[in-house]
Structures are given as C-alpha cells and as structure tokens.
C-alpha cells in the first residue's frame, strides 16, 4: 500500500459531486455461460464522483466496469450511461464508448504506432477531428501526464509507468465524461505506481467522474468520495472512505481489509 499519495495536498475545489446522474445500474445480472458472475448490482454514480471499487480477486470488479462500456454484455437489468441505455444497438454502444474512457491493467497501447499516433488515432477516426487539431489535443494531454518529449517514440521504448500515463492520455484525448480504471497500477513496479496515481489524482482534481478498481487504499483515502466493496459478484458494502476503513460493517469487508492493509 502506498502512503505516498497522502503526502501532497489535494486541491478539492473542483471535486464536487453534482446531483446529475452519470451512470445508473439497476438490478444488473451477468453470467459467463452458467457461472453467475454479477448478481443484482444496483449502483448510481453521480457526475463528479470518484469511486474506488475493491474486493478479492475474482469477485467481479473487472466484469462490472467492463459492463459499463459494454466490453462485456449483461444479461438482465439495465445500465444507463449518460442517459443512453446499453443495449445491443451498435449506435448506442459506439456513442457510449466514445464518451467513456478506459484504462487497463496492461495498458494495451498499440505497439505499432508512436505515442502521438496512439493518442490521435481515435479522435481522428471516431470523432473525425482534423489531424492537426488532434495532434494539438494529444500534445496537450501528453503534457498533462508529463511525457510530451516521448511523443515520437514507440510504446515498447517506454517504462511501464510511462506507458500507463500514455494510456490515460490516450483516453483523455477523446474528451470522455467518465473514466474507468481497471487496476491501473497492478502491473507496475512500486516506484512507478506513484507517477500513475499522481496522474489519476490530478484527473480527480479536475472534477472527472471516475470509477477505479484498485487496491491502492492510500489513493482511495485521498481522493475517493465512495469506496465499494465487492465479493462473489455482489456489492457487499459501500461507504465514504473514512467510514469504510475505520468502521467496516460486514465481516467479509473486515477480513478483506485486514488482509490488504496487512495488520
């Protein structure tokens, strides 16, 4: 667990939660074949929320956030993102995907394209942004994640932490209204975790709506306004960070926290 993130003062002036609903999940169920992986998920995310999702491995955290941009299909219940219901209608899916950014555990940068091309690809081909403008936007976000000087390199030439920051910049270039993170720091060496978390904190400071699957409890305490604990495909408990860590309700949460905090 990294305490590093708490060392720095966090600017909370833009971290405001509005009462506008960003994501509404009702009675959502999902199966992999016959395996019931998500059960009766109900979750309302308001614009500006920073939610951290944690839970033991295999509890369905990834599946849940992958359902939100339809990388996985749910079989029952409803998911409404930005007022658009996720159905098999391809138009809706493309619309939602271009408004919801996602960062993966293994970055998934495109190795055959330069950093700059990675960042301009979707704006040019999905948003039809002119190339010049797309490159300006890309450089702007690469500046934000502090690697503008790497723009002409290929992903394979960057360190893991740098790659993950590029992946974040790549998502941001689509100007998403919601960002999903699936264990963005789990594949990183400890000294690189901080640089990625710092980037995510800056994003939170700008008021981005974020759902992060992560076990970085320092990050959760610093910026999350809500922590969700999942186990066996269900949301077991959710609370604001202070309460969640100091006063967990269910036994499963207590067990999990004692394991992850290591004392």
């Amino acid at each position: 667990m990294s305490d590093i993130v708490t060392e720095r003062d966090i600017d909370r002036s833009h971290m405001t939660v509005s009462d506008e609903v960003a994501i509404q999940i009702d009675q959502m169920n999902k199966w992999y074949g016959t395996f019931h992986v998500l059960r009766d998920i109900n979750l309302t995310v308001y614009r500006g929320e920073r939610i951290v999702i944690c839970g033991p491995s295999g509890s369905g955290k990834s599946t849940l956030i992958r359902c939100i941009n339809r990388l996985e299909e749910h079989q029952a219940g409803s998911i409404v993102v930005d007022g658009t219901e996720l159905s098999s209608d391809l138009k809706n899916i493309d619309k939602i995907r271009s408004e919801v950014g996602m960062c993966f555990q293994h970055f998934n940068l495109f190795p055959h394209l330069t950093i700059l091309e990675n960042c301009t690809l979707a704006p040019i081909w999905v948003r039809k942004t002119p190339k010049k403008e797309a490159e300006e936007i890309a450089m702007h976000f690469l500046q934000k994640v502090k690697i503008p000087e790497q723009a002409d390199k290929y992903p394979g030439q960057l360190s893991g932490g740098q790659q993950q920051r590029v992946a974040i910049a790549r998502s941001l270039c689509m100007k998403p209204r919601i960002m999903l993170f699936d264990e963005p720091t789990s594949a990183l060496d400890p000294e690189m975790i901080k640089e990625v978390l710092d980037t995510m904190i800056e994003l939170a400071e700008e008021g981005m709506t974020m759902l992060c699957v992560t076990h970085e409890m320092g990050f959760a305490q610093a910026v999350a306004n809500r922590v969700i604990f999942m186990d066996q495909g269900q949301i077991v408990e959710q609370n604001e960070p202070k309460e969640f860590f100091n006063n967990p309700q269910s036994d499963r949460t207590k067990l999990f926290l004692s394991q992850i905090l290591g004392h």
Partner: peptide, 11 residues
C-alpha cells in the same frame, strides 16, 4: 487487450 483497447476507444 488490443481488441479491447480498440473497442474501448469506440473504433
């Protein structure tokens, strides 16, 4: 992951 990243970007 390459397919997923492309999908997630809306391509």
């Amino acid at each position: 992951g390459q397919y997923e990243a492309a999908d997630a970007l809306g391509l």
